[in-house]
């Protein structure tokens, strides 16, 4: 039952298209072209410097799917996400609630917690690398311990996860604060009059009314965590014993595509990740209907 556009509406639409054109062109060139190229390359034995690609059908796929390191890296990535996403969200939520109250030095604390987000990820990783160093690291120095934080395969993945949580808290916190400010103060007033204490108010008002924000953060952070690369790349040396148990799937992709120059194989690894993220996103969208509370 579409109405025909009037002349004025048409003119308006033309202007609208003009204004979104830069973004659309940017997306087409910077995102969509690489995406379809990646899909194409995953079916090729790629030549040097992007020249002379030979179509090989599913050969890359059978190799990637049969390789143990693919699944190990995917599992490593999931383990990383299992640390970063829940802890990054819960800690950020607590901080956001505390910093949403009228306390002295509020913007000072907000700035402090947001700072990691402003730092270059490479610089963050270098600092943590030295904190974790077994021989000279600050952590072992303070605790008088000899823990191989990033070289012991049993704990290295947790150490990397901690850096991830530390880096993302500030960003999640800012999103939560903006979500909190959307909640009308009347609800809390009414609850106070009815005799609900702070904790009860948090779980009965804040959590459900914040759930759209929470869901947004969960979804974007899961995708963000599954595409993690820089932490492992910067913190761990190539000869680190724990690397096979920590390297993410994007790290594996980088290793094959850029270090070994085998772009077809690398593209196939990313296709595995793509399918995985698509499946996960579908599950999340189903869950959204049940979990998220729309006021």
């Amino acid at each position: 039952m579409k109405k025909k556009m009037t002349e004025a509406e048409k003119r308006e639409a033309r202007w609208a298209y003009l204004f979104v054109a830069p973004t659309i062109i940017g997306l087409l060139i910077l995102n969509f072209y690489p995406i379809f190229n990646t899909v194409y390359q995953s079916f090729c034995k790629t030549g040097d410097f992007g020249k002379g690609n030979v179509f090989v059908g599913l050969a890359n796929y059978s190799k990637v799917l049969a390789a143990g390191e693919t699944w190990q890296s995917l599992w490593n990535t999931i383990k990383y996400a299992l640390i970063e996403v829940p802890f990054g969200i819960v800690i950020a939520l607590i901080l956001a609630v505390l910093l949403n109250k009228k306390i002295a030095g509020r913007s000072f604390y907000r700035t402090i917690f947001f700072l990691p987000m402003v730092c270059a990820p490479a610089a963050v990783a270098m600092v943590w690398k030295w904190l974790y160093n077994t021989q000279f690291g600050l952590l072992n120095n303070i605790f008088h311990s000899k823990i191989a934080w990033i070289s012991d395969p049993k704990i290295a993945w947790i150490s990397i996860g901690i850096i991830g949580v530390w880096s993302i808290i500030g960003y999640n916190m800012v999103l939560f604060i903006s979500g909190l400010q959307e909640i009308p103060g009347d609800y809390y007033e009414a609850a106070s009059i009815d005799g609900a204490n702070g904790l009860r108010q948090f779980f009965s008002i804040t959590v459900p009314l914040l759930s759209p924000t929470t869901f947004f953060i969960v979804q974007t952070r899961i995708i963000g965590a599954l595409t993690i690369f820089d932490l492992m790349f910067m913190v761990m040396d190539k000869t680190n014993v724990a690397l096979p148990k920590v390297q993410s799937i994007v790290y594996l992709f980088y290793q094959y595509s850029f270090t070994n120059g085998n772009k077809g194989y690398g593209a196939t690894i990313v296709m595995v990740l793509l399918v995985f993220i698509m499946a996960l996103t579908w599950i999340l969208q189903q869950a959204e209907k049940k979990i998220v509370y729309h006021a």
């Binding site: 995102n31 995406i35 690369f229 994007v250 980088y254 850029f258 990740l273 993220i277 969208q285």
Partner: peptide, 27 residues
């Protein structure tokens, strides 16, 4: 519509991965 949205979301993640790789190189 949902399927399209889903595909786009996942594809976006894919291109993020690609950017992550090359980005660190040029960084």
């Amino acid at each position: 519509k949902k399927l399209v949205a889903l595909t786009l979301a996942a594809l976006m993640a894919l291109s993020m991965a690609a950017c992550g790789g090359s980005g660190s190189g040029s960084g």
